[in-house]
Amino acid sequence: MKTLTYREAVREAMREEMRKNEYIFLMGQDVGPYGGEHRVSGDLHSEFGEWRVKDAPISEQGIIGCALGASITGCRAIAEIPFMDFIMLPMDQICNQIAKYLYTFGGQASVPLVIRTAMGGYIRAAEQHSQCLEAWFIHIPGLKVVIPSTPYDVKGLLKTAIRDNNPVIFVEHKYLYGMKGEIPEEEYTIPLGVADIKKEGNDVSVIATSYMVHKALNVANKLEKEGISVEVVDPRTLVPLDKETILKSVEKTSRAIIVHEAPLRGGIGGEIAAIIADEGFEYLDAPIKRIGAKDAPIPFPSVLEDFILPSEVGIEKTIKELL
């Protein structure tokens, strides 16, 4: 095993896949010699050169449209949108074009591309650099949505996403880039659609995504000392979603809390809660609870941002209320 940061794990996944296939390229603002706005692409430009690690203008529709055009003509594009907030600019290309290309043309052309983007707050970046928009994309048929929480997961899932013949929205988290984790020396991949039990427990299932997995784990470790056994389930991919693992966990614990960083209203928590209610109602001994950001934009100073976003204190309180 070796220790890598989440950022390095993303880079290593790209490097390994790009070495295997000369038609994979990375395109985005500042991904070249500068090394990426979050320093993710790093030295890839020096290894792969100008056409495989391409600095793009500040033209999100152009970047995503270009990635699409290249991906239907023999290449595999990895497009980087450094802040998920900016993904609103190319929404037509993503939702009307990329998501529907295979379908619209009767299966003639698949779209093997990955849009890597970084979501998330807790970094005092204010309203337009902090949002979590993953739920928007699960609503569009034709897109896969991946949301990894650890260096191990991000590497294995990104390699799979790059090899996938369908478009993948790959949602990284800015706060996680510096997080370290153990990664095998040898090559590995993680299939899409397989959730991971990050911590086993018996009293309550906390289904958490991305950075919230770590908050849930901190709470679970703390409560363990108080004799409360929390199971932390990380779906890892939202489309496809591993319903079975989630339902099995709820069957065991009889209680479910879903935690995401995005606003509560319209978030992925509603979808997961509905699945549990539809298919696992008889397992439940308590109402399903959802934790998300309060329904307001994300302000920048810590005193305000921390009030809006989910907290460990909040997760702990909800768990205790449910038991």
Partner: peptide, 19 residues
């Protein structure tokens, strides 16, 4: 979608260059 094909064509051009 009016104009949507323009960056897609650019991308096909990019692919030609890369290949």
């Amino acid at each position: 979608i009016v104009g949507a094909g323009i960056p897609i064509a650019t991308g096909a051009g990019y692919s030609i260059k890369l290949r």
